[in-house]
């Protein structure tokens, strides 16, 4: 897990879409939202799932590993950047290989887009747009110490299970401290 990172708590998400609207305002991809907000049981419950890039650490960025054009850079601080515009050939490998379903493909632009942890903001110490506007703190940006101080009885989990494989990530999900084991990946 990265030092200062995003902590996602789907249990708190009310599906208001503020994060989606705020993400569109990010200067590094203005007009395009990189966060996904999916309704788990649309029409019946308010349950929603916000998904940002989890910035996989082990294995390091599967999206970058399957990229045939070496277009996805992982910076020294562990942030998996979106595809380099001059290199991306729009094949879609990253879209289908990502275990979290994060990257998007703009077919006309022949370009992948994905959450880059609002790198224009986080690289200068600001919180990502989504965390800034989330009214329930379902998306929290800070250190693990800040999260634990804010939410007694909560823990952060940065390991996800996909079948028999485990993926350790730079971002994390929030779980009650009674929960043990990797978070389920849904596979």
């Amino acid at each position: 897990m990265m030092g200062t990172t995003l902590f996602i708590d789907p249990g708190r998400c009310i599906g208001c879409q503020a994060c989606v609207a705020a993400c569109r305002e990010c200067d590094s991809h203005r007009g395009k939202s990189m966060i996904h907000l999916d309704y788990i049981d649309a029409g019946r419950t308010a349950a929603a799932m916000p998904t940002v890039c989890m910035h996989c650490e082990d294995p390091v960025a599967p999206c970058a590993e399957v990229c045939p054009a070496d277009a996805i850079l992982v910076t020294a601080d562990g942030v998996v950047q979106e595809a380099a515009k001059e290199r991306c050939i729009g094949c879609g490998n990253c879209v289908d290989a990502c275990p979290f379903g994060v990257p998007k493909l703009d077919v006309a632009e022949m370009l992948q887009y994905k959450c880059n942890l609002c790198y224009d903001r986080t690289s200068v110490g600001l919180a990502p747009m989504c965390a800034t506007v989330c009214p329930t703190s379902a998306i929290f940006y800070g250190s693990i110490e800040e999260l634990e101080a804010d939410r007694p009885g909560a823990q952060a989990i940065d390991v996800f299970r996909f079948g028999s494989a485990e993926v350790r990530t730079g971002c994390a999900v929030v779980a009650p401290d009674s929960f043990t084991g990797p978070a389920p990946g849904g596979m």
């Binding site: 789907p10 249990g11 379903g101 929030v174 389920p184 990946g185 596979m187």
Partner: peptide
């Protein structure tokens, strides 16, 4: 990578399935 079968599921379904699994087994919300 160990999860190649997962490539047969669309990105949206991957996210929804993970959300369902989280809300079923980690925290109800």
């Amino acid at each position: 990578l160990g999860f190649s079968e997962w490539a047969e599921t669309c990105p949206r379904c991957k996210r929804v399935l993970r959300g369902q699994a989280y809300l079923d087994t980690v925290k109800r919300g």
